[in-house]
């Protein structure tokens, strides 16, 4: 892969490109949750299903840390986007 990442979309939900992710990894943001906080990766409708794997591989490639040792983020509910009015009702107690 050549190092000229034009228009390589990694997080489709939040439209974050590879170049931007690489810049932040090189600044030391080398866990998934740190990148999530600065870039919103993994915060869209798919909740990281499309981008998490690519981002962990990229962190591993740039820092030399094996993927197994990279914190891959916290998985909170909801797993899938839901309408606020549905959540507000909160279901039958």
């Amino acid at each position: 892969m050549p190092e000229e990442p034009q228009n390589i979309v990694v997080c489709r939900c939040e439209e974050v490109e590879l170049e931007e992710i690489r810049e932040w990894i090189d600044k030391g943001y080398d866990t998934f949750d740190e990148l999530k906080r600065v870039l919103r990766v993994g915060m869209g409708p798919c909740q990281g299903r499309g981008c998490r794997d690519i981002i962990l591989r990229e962190i591993s490639r740039r820092t030399g840390t094996p993927i197994a040792e990279i914190p891959c983020g916290t998985f909170r509910p909801p797993v899938k986007a839901i309408k606020v009015k549905v959540a507000a009702k909160g279901g039958d107690r």
Partner: peptide
């Protein structure tokens, strides 16, 4: 859509409208 360890409840969302 989520598991809540405090009370062991799994939140289900049916037809995108019903929260169970």
């Amino acid at each position: 859509n989520g598991f809540y360890p405090d009370d062991g409840v799994v939140a289900l969302v049916k037809d995108e409208e019903e929260y169970i």
